[in-house]
Structure formats: C-alpha cells, structure tokens
Design a protein around this nucleic acid. Structure first.
Lengths: 187, 187
DNA sequence: TGTGTTTTTTAACATTTGTAAAAAGCTAAA
DNA sequence: TTTAGCTTTTTACAAATGTTAAAAAACACA
C-alpha cells in the first residue's frame, strides 16, 4: 500500500500539503517479533503500515492484554504519547516482517501549526480512530463474547488467518479457552 | 462553567479565533428528562455543558446501554454523526435540568476550513475524546467489574451522587445486581 | 405524616467465563 | 522421519456474573 493512498484515506490534501507531509516521512523495515513502540517511553515517531500486521498490547497483572491490531494502511502510534506527550502504556509488536512509513511527531505538529490542510488531516486522523474505538467500547459493553467474535469474522476475516488465537481472544476480551469453546460450538 | 474556559481546556485560541467560535454559539436550556440528541437522526448541532449532567445510551436487544456521562465542561455530540455525517446510534438524555452552549456542526466545519487555529482546536477535541475512550476500552478488556467501579470512585466520585446506580452499572458494563454486590462487599 | 412510586438491595438459581492442566495438532529443523 | 517447541482444543472444576423476583429503602409530594 503506498503512502499517497494511506494519506488520502483520511482527508484529501492539496498537492503542496501532501508533498510537505511526505517530505517528512521515511520508509523503514523491521522483522517479525520486533518491538516498534515500547511502553513507558515517550515516542518520537508515528508510523503507517505499508505492509504487515502488528499488535498493540499492555502488560497487566494477569499477563499481556492485546487491544489493537494494525494491518496495511493503519496508523501505528501510541495515542497517549502522541496526544498528551506523556509516557505510552502500550507496546507494538510486529507479527510479520513489516514495512512502515515513519513520521516524526514534532515535525508533524509543526506542520499542523503552519498548514491548515494538514491540521484538518490531523483532525481526521484522530476522529477516524475515535469512531472505531467508540464502536469497540460499546460492543464490549453490550455484546456477548460470541457476538464479538462473529462481528470480527464479519469485519476482518483475514485477520484470523494472520494472527494467532491467543491474541485474538485477548483482543475480544475473553480467555483463549472461551474462544476455543465458541469456535467449537459453531461447527 | 463559562464558554471561554471550556474552549481553552482543549486548546488555547488567539482572540479573533475564539471570538469567531463564540459568535456561532448560542445558549440553550432544557429540563431534566429531555432527549437532546436522538438515535437514527443526523444531528446538526454539538453542545458543551454549562450546567448539568447527561447520559448517552443506545437501545440494544436486552434494553438500554448507558455508555457515557457528561458533566460541566464536557462536549456533547454524536461522534458518529459529527464525524461521518451518518445517523447517530446514541440518545442523549438530560439527568438534571441543563444549560448548554450550542454550536452548529456545518458552521464549525466551515471554520475548520478557514481558520487554522480552529482546525487545531477541532483536532484537540477529537484527540481528547480518543484518549479517554481508549482508556475505558482497555479497562473493559482487562479489569474486573470491581476494579472498574473502584476506578470510577477514584476519578469521578461526584458522579455517583448525581446519577442513579442502574445507569452507572450499565456504564461499567455490569448488571445492577452485580454493582450492588460489589458495593455491599466494600463495607 | 401517609401513600404511592422509584430506586436499591437481597436471595436463589442458572449461565457464562475463567484457571489449570492435559491432550491433540501443527511446524520446522535435525 | 523424528523430535522439540509452539499453538489450539478439551476437560474438570471454580469463580464471577447474569436473571428473575421479591423485599427493603429512599424519595416525592399531596
């Protein structure tokens, strides 16, 4: 997936603004297993996935909790670090070899202050994530584990083939045993 | 709470931008029980709470699900309607007599396109909500019902005195019976 | 104060989900 | 092919939470 397309998904930019944004981006590659963002760090960069799958997780008392997957085209960033400048609570682990577009947060914020089109692009970036996060929160509150699994099959069937079930279960807010039970029940 | 303070909480605006924003706002008052926003409608306005408490809920198969409370200073809007222009899935009910600042979404978006400071203010509005929503999502995924209740006591103790427990229980993703059990257990 | 309404708590039971451990399945390297 | 390691499913049991209904408490107001 190329950067023009990723950028335009959020908000169509005039040519000079787009050029300014792309000028700050550089392409990077990391292998499967690499930890791209680390918790307790203040991140300096955000990424967009050109190729690959990643997961976001936090370390909790009972073990790791996976709360987000990113596939081609997705923005990869610690929202907390990006937005508040505070330490991140999430780790981003590469589940496949990945290629990213890397953007420096400070440069990006400087652009937001200078270029109104980019400020609106940055607004759309946050708004886009907000709608998705809110939908998931509501699903967690009033759907059963089985419904959440069915929803995922409907909306991201490919993800199930690329990510191991333990991570999917955590993402859906259930134990791996529960997910296995649901899968067995559907046969 | 006055509108200057509410606006500045998100992003400090230069005087002319602030004046332009305030010029589009009008003050409105509605009684307890009034439904400010309705599901399945495309909303034309967003609000900020000058005084009062509101809740956002959706109608689900098993009954209403309360997924948000707003108190003084909070933005009140259907994120879906505001962001995507699609029909809202939420209702906003006033739990007390309320006063709001009302802003027209179309006017607001026009300002975003013309004024870079307001575009950045709009970005902060979305980013602010995003961080809060993400924190709640993660809590839903890996905290127990009791921990979620304790967190709420810690972060919004006043809310418990203004909102009936059935709504709080729904907001925390548990039945009212569970919430009663937790409260009994803490004594 | 007394009465009717709403809210909260309690009780009993059913269901869901979790935990831990074992079994089965799969993959890749020797 | 065999082995070792990792993932997924299954089993048995425990804990948490839900549902329904009823009792108790709190509240509103004539």
């Amino acid at each position: 997936m190329d950067i023009d397309k990723i950028i335009a998904t959020l908000y169509v930019l005039p040519e000079p603004s787009k050029a300014a944004l792309i000028a700050t981006a550089k392409q990077v590659t990391y292998p499967k297993g690499y930890i791209l963002l680390k918790a307790d760090r203040i991140e300096k960069n955000i990424y967009f996935i050109k190729k690959g799958v990643v997961r976001a997780y936090s370390d909790a008392p009972g073990g790791q909790v996976t709360f987000w997957f990113g596939v081609e085209g997705a923005p990869v960033l610690s929202m907390k670090s990006y937005i508040t400048g505070e330490k991140s609570y999430e780790n981003i682990e590469l589940l496949e070899d990945c290629e990213f577009f890397e953007l420096n947060i400070a440069s990006l914020k400087a652009l937001y202050e200078k270029d109104i089109h980019l400020a609106n692009w940055g607004r759309k970036l946050a708004e886009h994530e907000l709608v998705k996060t809110e939908e998931r929160l509501i699903a967690m509150q009033f759907k059963t584990a089985q419904e959440r699994y069915m929803d995922l099959i409907g909306s991201q069937p490919a993800l199930l083939l690329r990510v191991q079930l333990g991570y999917i279960a955590s993402y859906l807010g259930m134990s791996q045993v529960s997910l296995s039970r649901i899968r067995a029940g559907l046969k």
